[in-house]
Amino acid sequence: MSTAAVIADKFLPGLDRVPVWLNDPANWTGPNGLLERIGQHLGYSVSAVVVALLIALPLGLVIGHTGRGVFLVVGLANGLRAVPILGLLLLLVVWLSPHLHARLTVPGLIPPGGFAYIVPIEIALVLLAIPPILSNTYAGVQAVDPAVRDAGEGMGMRGSQVIWQVEFPCALPLVMSGLRSATLQVIATATVAAYVPFLGGLGRFILDGQDQLTNLRYGYPAMVSAGIVVAVLAVVVDLLLALVQRLVVSRGVAERYRRRRGVRAVPEPA
């Protein structure tokens, strides 16, 4: 931060400028407006959560079913928690990005030249999202009543059928709660993407505002507004996933789940 910014720091615009900023349509539409940044932010977050789900869900189901690799899961989840995500991200940027030369561009999401930088942030976000999904899936399968599993096997189901038709539906409430806490963390952390060259997302406002704090359009009011939008986005997506959870979880399972209280994974701030 420049000395000019430090001096300006004493005269920060008040938080009353925040509603004014959010009420200005010019800040929402147009290039680099809130809507575009929200799109990018969701793009980074959703793709990371989907990839994490594709990795963690099958792995969690198999580990839960066979009981093998439990030690690995617990160790991985605890170990990853201690690694600061900012350090991991910047490590990947410095290490990987110079070796990535693909010219893939996606309008609005990956700008020209941005591919080399989107890969590190996606890897970091996927690594962030895997532990909650993995450990909840595994715990959910482990918690399935052995009598239910035996019934499935007694009906002549094969191992894979038991996993998909018995254990997975029964573990779904816990899987969903893992998915929800992973999504919350990823949306919050995707703010850091703006620290990487070429990338946007809502963190852009926060980082760009630092050098012009007193600027009423790009400074402190924009930073706080973008921060509030991130928090609201996280809550809205969580509510949507809660709705999905209601729709996909079998009613019988949900009722039994409600009686077993207090199993939702503790989310972490990011």
Binding site: L15, L184, A188, T189, T191, V192, G203, I206, Y220, M223, V224, A226, G227, I228, V230, A231, A234, V235, D238, P267, E268, P269, A270
Partner: peptide
């Protein structure tokens, strides 16, 4: 918990 730390630091 849903508020990102970076946001809280600046608010």
């Amino acid at each position: 918990y849903t508020i990102p730390s970076l946001v809280l630091f600046i608010v």
